[in-house]
Amino acid sequence: MDRIDRHILATLQHDGRISTADLAEKVGLSPSPCARRLKRLEDDGFIQHYQANLEKEKVGINMTFFVEIGLNRHQEDTIESFESALLEMPEVINAHVVSGSFDYLLEVVSPNLQGYEAFTNKLHKLSSVKDIHTHLSVRQLATKRVLPVYL
């Protein structure tokens, strides 16, 4: 990965709908070499997929919660079952396995408190869940949807 590849990745994070011709101009290449680099970056897994970032409130999401989950068992089958269940819950928009006093940190969205209560009811039904601690996001300071490219 060189300076041009990093520039391509940074540009795409700001505007995923940019045409190849405009991208090529921004990074100082002609369209054909730029298209080849872009294809290579996709094939090599640097670009996972393209998506639209939606404004939460405009699609009815008014609340964000950070949820700490502790499991009661740490056997492979328990972990696989819990993680499979999480992947089926659309309210979970980010999930991390973490170290420390709990096992998972989830970012959960909901239109309201009733929606969040319904979500926690689903969690309580999972036999592997021991502890649930919830933090309500009062206000989001910033969204950094652009990743720094260190390579």
Score class of each variant (00 low, 15 high):
100 G>E: 14
145 R>Y: 08
24 A>K: 05
34 C>N: 05
2 D>I: 01
8 I>Y: 01
111 P>C: 06
50 Y>T: 05
46 F>H: 14
108 V>Y: 04
84 S>H: 11
75 Q>H: 11
150 Y>S: 13
80 E>D: 12
28 G>Q: 05
142 A>S: 13
54 L>W: 07
60 G>V: 01
72 N>C: 10
93 I>F: 00
97 V>E: 05
44 D>Q: 14
108 V>M: 06
134 T>H: 06
101 S>G: 04
36 R>N: 07
31 P>H: 03
44 D>Y: 04
23 L>W: 07
119 F>A: 01
62 N>A: 07
2 D>H: 03
80 E>C: 03
45 G>W: 01
102 F>T: 13
52 A>V: 12
116 Y>R: 01
40 R>Q: 14
101 S>P: 02
94 N>H: 12
17 R>A: 12
72 N>H: 10
55 E>M: 08
65 F>L: 03
24 A>W: 02
40 R>C: 04
130 K>G: 04
40 R>L: 12
7 H>S: 12
66 F>W: 11
131 D>P: 00
116 Y>A: 02
77 D>K: 15
87 L>V: 07
60 G>P: 01
150 Y>D: 04
10 A>M: 06
56 K>S: 14
45 G>N: 09
129 V>A: 11
57 E>Y: 14
98 V>H: 07
94 N>P: 00
147 L>N: 15
120 T>R: 02
27 V>E: 04
68 E>V: 00
110 S>A: 14
37 R>Y: 02
148 P>T: 10
134 T>C: 02
36 R>Y: 06
100 G>L: 09
57 E>K: 15
35 A>K: 09
35 A>P: 02
47 I>E: 15
109 V>G: 06
5 D>L: 05
20 T>L: 09
57 E>G: 09
119 F>E: 00
107 E>D: 06
89 M>C: 13
138 V>P: 05
73 R>Q: 15
1 M>K: 02
83 E>A: 08
117 E>S: 11
44 D>T: 14
49 H>C: 08
15 D>T: 03
5 D>F: 00
70 G>V: 00
115 G>N: 01
107 E>N: 05
65 F>P: 01
21 A>Q: 08
72 N>W: 09
67 V>N: 10
149 V>T: 11
9 L>H: 01
113 L>P: 00
64 T>C: 09
112 N>W: 00
100 G>I: 10
95 A>R: 07
33 P>K: 07
149 V>L: 12
125 K>I: 01
36 R>D: 08
132 I>V: 12
70 G>H: 01
31 P>I: 00
13 Q>A: 13
113 L>R: 03
90 P>M: 02
146 V>P: 09
17 R>I: 00
29 L>Y: 08
4 I>M: 04
68 E>R: 05
54 L>N: 05
74 H>F: 12
90 P>N: 13
107 E>K: 09
117 E>L: 06
76 E>N: 10
93 I>T: 15
41 L>C: 12
84 S>A: 11
6 R>K: 15
51 Q>R: 05
123 L>Y: 06
5 D>H: 04
53 N>M: 10
52 A>H: 09
120 T>H: 02
78 T>W: 03
95 A>Q: 07
57 E>M: 11
123 L>F: 08
145 R>A: 03
139 R>S: 10
7 H>Q: 13
126 L>I: 07
126 L>H: 10
48 Q>K: 03
146 V>K: 14
125 K>S: 14
